[in-house]
Amino acid sequence: MSKLTVENVSFIYSAGTPFEVKALDGVSVNIEANRITGIIGHTGSGKSTLVQMFNGLIRPTEGRILLDGEDIWADAKKISAVRYRVGLVMQYPEYQLFEETVEADIAYGPKNMGLDEAEITQRVIESAKFVGLEEQDLKKSPFDLSGGQKRRAAIAGIMAMRPEVLVLDEPSAGLDPAGKKSIFEGIRKYAEATGAAVIIVSHSMDDMAKYCEDIIVMSHSRVAMTGKRNEIFSRGDELEAIGLGVPQMTYLMRLLAQRGINLPQDIFTVDDAEAAIIELFGGAK
């Protein structure tokens, strides 16, 4: 059984008015535990709406969301319990920081859960470690941190609730390469340590290729493709038809192939490409 199942979900904004917009149209996906799933799609394809359904911020107009096989909207009063189990990191989460210290801000979620003091402290330290925040940073005001650190503190705030499903909407938007890397490493560490199902929404095919195992492609409020990373990125022409692309290294391999250089086409990351090229020249790394 899948960890999280989206069953034929539709959503209409401003239903019943002239401004009606169908943001999701009969979407069905399965999210597995112990895996990192990527959701890609161009702007306005319904990604963010879908993501906000996972933890019940938006209620589907039609269809069901199942967490461990149970409808999360079966009892609307218990929706906040679902929000602890499905942690959502929204876009630019650093704008939600509000406490006096980073420590207190990370503790906000666990405190709302009603955990005891010792458990909260332990979780704060643990999640700070996941995202690579130093012990001395915890005592600082969140507003004295750098952009990348703020982002990591905000993500740690969700991780501290120790959700079984961790959803991140564009976690690396607007960060420099180093900041990006540390965020994704943190997410990966969390996934490995907890066995949670992790869902990442991103525009960057390269990040997706590097960190995600499964990919869901959204287009025009519908699911266009789902599958393993390799399957999806080998369908480059279809992705381009939707207005998306493939990772840069996959492009490179395709261009080289057109010029008659025989390289494998299932290459998605820089490391894979490096290995393949070295092999082509008959060398060993």
Partner: peptide
Amino acid sequence: AAQKARGAD
């Protein structure tokens, strides 16, 4: 919405 995701009521 973001604070609701952290359990704000």
